[in-house]
Design a protein around this nucleic acid. Structure first.
Length: 189
DNA sequence: GGTGCGATTGCA
DNA sequence: GCAATCGCACCA
């Protein structure tokens, strides 16, 4: 089943609401040769506001993170550890620096894209897509699919943000209960 | 202009 | 358990 790309009204909402609703939705990626890769999202993490000590936004806008201050509905892509790309979708209104890290999806070729670095590799995403719009079905977009019921949503602390003090404990990681593609990153408080 | 490290992964 | 690997934020 194919549907239209989720639009500005979907992304320009509070980041936790968008993160919850992205679970189960279909991430779509059109390659240069026209090939379309599709896979349902099963794990995402919300990052919200300059006050969120886990977020790249915590030091204010910089060359790397400036996309987060734009209105919701565009990609924020960065390189971590000198080798892995991470794909985020910006949410909220302009000057609300929120974004959602896409951490795992059912990959097109049946190989689970389990973990943010693996997801970007499976969907051929790199920094050339930083700032790309999710709204028009071009290189990158998300389509609504069968919703995940509340009883199947599991929230945990975010992965790899132990440096964030009390913000590390917030359960802003959303996963689909028991789904095999959910990454088994470890979190500690 | 120099330095330290990260929203990770794969291999020992 | 730890190395790989580099853009960039931060300090001087």
């Amino acid at each position: 089943m194919r549907s239209r790309p989720l639009g500005a009204a979907f992304y320009r909402r509070p980041v936790l609401a968008v993160a919850r609703d992205l679970l189960g939705a279909t991430l779509c990626r059109r390659l240069g040769d026209g090939t379309i890769l599709r896979g349902r999202l099963v794990e995402v993490e919300a990052y919200g506001g300059e006050e969120d000590l886990a977020s790249h936004a915590r030091f204010g806008p910089t060359k790397r993170n400036r996309r987060m201050w734009e209105p919701g509905g565009l990609a924020y892509v960065y390189l971590v550890y000198g080798m892995h790309h991470c794909l985020n979708v910006v949410t909220g209104a302009r000057d609300e620096p929120q974004a959602i890290l896409l951490r795992a999806a059912e990959a097109p070729n049946d190989a689970p894209a389990s973990g943010p670095g693996r997801l970007t590799r499976a969907f051929a995403v790199d920094r050339a897509l930083d700032g790309a719009s999710f709204l028009h079905g071009e290189a990158l977009w998300v389509e609504a699919a069968e919703p995940i019921p509340d009883r199947a949503v599991v929230r945990t602390p975010r992965i790899g943000v132990a440096y964030a003090g009390t913000w590390a404990a917030k359960r802003w990681r959303f996963t689909v209960r028991g789904h095999p593609a959910v990454s088994r990153g470890t979190f500690r408080l």
